[in-house]
Design a binder for these strands. Structure first.
Lengths: 109, 109
DNA sequence: TTTTTATAACGCAATATTACGATAAAGTAA
DNA sequence: TTACTTTATCGTAATATTGCGTTATAAAAA
């Protein structure tokens, strides 16, 4: 099939999965890390730094935009991308909760 | 292609991407949440609770095992799965660092 | 022993993803 | 205006993923 079933899972499970999926590619992780590192937003710089073609990078940017993690703004000739603060903070809170909900279990596995 | 380029990215980027990818499916999120919720480990219960066939669930369990997030132990007839505490804690620390490295940027985007 | 139960593994069909070159669109510079 | 720069989109080829039925395997139960 190749198609992912979403029925039967909670909204939160589906949402989290979409976000994790968006982050689940080295190029997209690299983009995020670049945006985190540079205080200023970037754009074409990514094409020069990443080992991928311009069209491929554009695709990855689109994927990240679609789940809301990043946003872009036209700036003259080029486009300035950066992390969406609101979404980022929500992710941080949600994933923090997810990870923190683990309780150590001795005597099993 | 369909093949993911890993050269040119850091080891950490590739590792994080693999883990995020493993979490990037609603069924696998559901499995993780089940393991988090139940103090006890589970196994066949997943097949009964999830809207997927046994073989499909087995595949997802394998994917989670491969990145080390969960582990299984034979227990008589069935298999007991649970979260790998060490890996989970490492993930928590690493992702916590990642998210915390964001610095609010006013005046851009 | 035979049968049932619980899992994993195999193989397939359908769909998704990835990467790229080529092209389009839209601004900037000359 | 023309030429250049930057980005998005399209089309395509290769590969990956997903889901499932079917089949192995092994322990438990009958």
């Amino acid at each position: 099939m190749g198609i992912t079933k979403t029925e039967g899972f909670t909204k939160n499970q589906n949402k989290r999965a979409l976000i994790f999926k968006a982050l689940g590619h080295p190029a997209r992780m690299a983009i995020i890390e670049m945006l985190l590192k540079r205080q200023a937003c970037i754009c074409n710089d990514m094409v020069e730094e990443l080992p991928l073609s311009q069209s491929t990078i554009s695709q990855h940017l689109k994927a990240l935009k679609e789940v809301g993690i990043i946003k872009g703004e036209i700036e003259g000739n080029s486009i300035c991308y950066c992390i969406d603060e609101k979404v980022w903070n929500e992710m941080q809170a949600d994933f923090g909760k997810l990870f923190a909900s683990y309780k150590s279990m001795k005597g099993c596995c």
